[in-house]
């Protein structure tokens, strides 16, 4: 569905992404994990059209993307829920959600109302705060709003950049549950960037580990969760702990 082939992205002179290659299959939850500064956000930003790759090819449903044209890429069915949510603070929750459907509102697509109701079904607590400015919501509510806004674009593939950032474990669970639900309910494909490696790998089908801008490991999420180097580096499990559990 989404294929990256030897993608290289720079921030000025800084070479951030090195020959990134992977494919996301329709209907799967695909996780990208890695340390701070590994280039995860740059990777999602490159796919979403915020950054232009200097080399490499990105195709979505067989067609290559209009690189760097975020406002066109969202129309193709690729939606990014950005890092730190980036909601429109001064605008109401309702306005935030409907702006998510911007390209469809301009065509007066009647299904926008259906999607609005469906988002409220997915995140029922947003319903009671529709008229509140988005900036006044709690962190967890803002994350739900950001995801809801992303869904209002009616994407085929939704990308989420660290949805668990700064949230209490219970809310993270709720949000991760909604990701699984989204996949079931909408037949969505999910590309998930996380630092909460354990949580991400336990709901993902497949994953890659990004290290200093390179794909260090790739494979089945279950298998990565068991991988010794992943456990040591990202799950805080010491080497002999691993041995003890294996024994």
């Amino acid at each position: 569905m989404l294929t990256l082939n030897e993608v290289n992205t720079y921030h000025g002179h800084l070479h951030v992404l090195h020959d990134i290659t992977f494919t996301v299959e329709p209907g799967e939850i695909f996780a990208i994990v890695g340390a701070n500064g590994a280039g995860k956000s740059t990777l999602l930003g490159t796919i979403a059209g915020l950054y232009v790759p200097r080399r490499g090819v990105i195709t979505f449903q067989g067609r290559s993307l209009p690189y760097g044209r975020a406002e066109r890429i969202v129309r193709l069915g690729l939606s990014l829920v950005p890092e730190r949510r980036q909601i429109f603070d001064d605008l109401s929750v309702r306005d935030n959600l409907f702006l998510g459907a911007y390209h469809r509102m301009r065509r007066r697509d009647p299904s926008v109302m259906d999607d609005f109701r469906q988002v409220l079904r997915l995140f029922p607590r947003l319903e009671s705060m529709l008229d509140r400015p988005g900036g006044l919501l709690s962190g967890g509510e803002q994350q739900m709003l950001a995801i809801g806004r992303g869904l209002m674009a009616r994407p085929k593939l939704i990308m989420l950049d660290e949805p668990s950032l700064g949230l209490a474990p219970l809310i993270v669970q709720e949000i991760f549950r909604s990701l699984v639900e989204m996949r079931e309910a909408y037949g969505l494909t999910v590309l998930l960037v996380e630092q909460n490696v354990r949580a991400a790998l336990s709901i993902a089908d497949r994953a890659i580990v990004l290290e200093r801008g390179r794909v260090a490991l790739a494979g089945n999420a279950r298998a990565l969760l068991e991988d010794e180097s992943v456990r040591r580096t990202y799950l805080g499990v010491k080497g002999d702990d691993v041995h003890r559990r294996r024994a």
Binding site: L50, S79, L91, L99, M152
Partner: peptide
């Protein structure tokens, strides 16, 4: 307004 408040997020929802 969305464009003024957060131009990046505005682009991500398709506002040019």
């Amino acid at each position: 307004q969305a464009c003024v408040i957060n131009p990046v997020a505005a682009r991500l929802v398709g506002i040019d």
